[in-house]
Simulated assay, not measured.
Amino acid sequence: MNDFLKYAISQGASDFHIALGNNPVMRIHGELIPVDYPPIAAMESQRILIEILNDQQLAALGKQKNVDFCYKVPGIGRFRTNVFVQRHGIDAVFRIIPQKVPVFDSIGLPQNMRELAHYHQGMILVTGPSGCGKTTTLAALVDLINETRSAHIITIEDPIEYVHGNKVALINQREVNSHTETFSSALRASLREDPDVILVGEMRDLETVRMAITAAETGHLVLTTLHTTNAASSIDRIIGTFPPEEQWQVRIMISESLKAIITQVLLPTIDKKGVIPAFEILVVTQAIAALIREGKTFQIPSIQQTSQHLGMSLLDQSLLKLVQDKKVNPMSAFAKAFKKELIEPFLESK
């Protein structure tokens, strides 16, 4: 297994798949590329995957039929790993975690977003589809806080991906299943651990969402993620998590605690030698807060479109600029755009 992973790193892959009955597969710049290796047989799959699991992980696989963990190979790297049972046997996906913690200036966010690191309370959401770089953006924000503030940062992750050393800040990193049972239990405990900043890897359930909002309301900066495609839908997703009788109160709480939403997607560069992010940014102003309270989130995009001077933007605006600057293929941007008519003229000219 380690030889496979070493090869994947050498090829610049972001993910490596063990798929029973098929060649191993790498994802490189968003494209799935088969490895020149014979199809994986059932016995080989079981052997190479079972041997990397400890007893706790093996028990979880037997009970839940899938298990998440961070696989560490000294001298090679760290991998966010999911081993799962499918109809033919056992498969696995390894996400390659870069060795270095990303710095803010490397992730492509506008410079005015550096101000997010100076917030002392509230919630900052990073959203987008799986594999779009949410974890990288959060890691860069944590690193920026680590460099600039004397703060106690607690991260709750499943699993721990980027490993942060203490700089100006003090950082404690906790992994679900290894250091705590659930996101919500770790989040509840963190409020008694004198935190300034709490990173929650993902808000998966009502209790975690509730605790994250409580932490943001009680003087802590909460950084977290959702699998949503734009700012307005992110707000609706949070509110919709709660029972109907609580939603009016949650709207008020969100309008007061939410500070910013960063939505992102990744696109292959025009030369196909890498990927580049496109961002949608929402900064919660008084006008945005009023729309949240009044249940008028459908009006938020119009304010984003006209508030670029405040650092806001829509995803479509970011995609359009990447096309105009000839950084991405128009067809790639067209596939990600909401208002596809913005990109269509570039397809026709091409």
Rank of each mutant, 00 (worst) to 15 (best):
Q121Y: 10
N230K: 08
D205S: 07
L109V: 06
L58A: 07
S307C: 01
T180L: 09
M113R: 12
F104C: 08
M123W: 03
Q286N: 14
I300V: 14
H17P: 10
A278S: 12
I107P: 03
T136I: 09
V197E: 04
A189P: 05
M211L: 13
A212R: 04
L206E: 08
I50A: 09
F104Y: 15
A215K: 08
P277W: 01
K273F: 02
K65R: 15
K321Q: 14
V222S: 01
I171R: 03
G30M: 12
M331Y: 11
Q324D: 01
G122L: 11
K273V: 00
L282C: 08
V222I: 04
F94R: 06
K63Q: 13
A337Y: 07
L347F: 02
A140Y: 10
P277H: 04
D196E: 10
K63T: 13
K272E: 11
L315I: 09
I239R: 07
L5T: 09
A215P: 08
G165R: 08
D143L: 14
T225Y: 06
I276K: 00
T269E: 00
S307Y: 00
I97Y: 03
L53A: 04
S332Y: 09
I213M: 15
N23Q: 10
Y119G: 00
I90M: 11
T214Q: 14
V250I: 15
S106C: 11
I97C: 04
R78M: 01
G108Q: 05
K65M: 11
R80Y: 02
L206G: 02
E51K: 08
S10K: 13
L138C: 00
L32Q: 12
Q249D: 13
G133K: 01
L58K: 10
I50S: 11
L291R: 11
A337H: 03
K134V: 10
L221F: 07
E51R: 10
F69L: 06
F183A: 11
V101D: 06
S178D: 03
Q317T: 07
P195V: 07
T229W: 00
S190F: 05
Q317D: 05
I145G: 07
L314P: 00
K336F: 02
L347T: 07
S255M: 14
G128I: 07
Q299H: 05
P129V: 10
G201F: 02
P74T: 00
T180D: 06
G21Q: 10
H164K: 12
M123A: 10
A60R: 14
G21S: 12
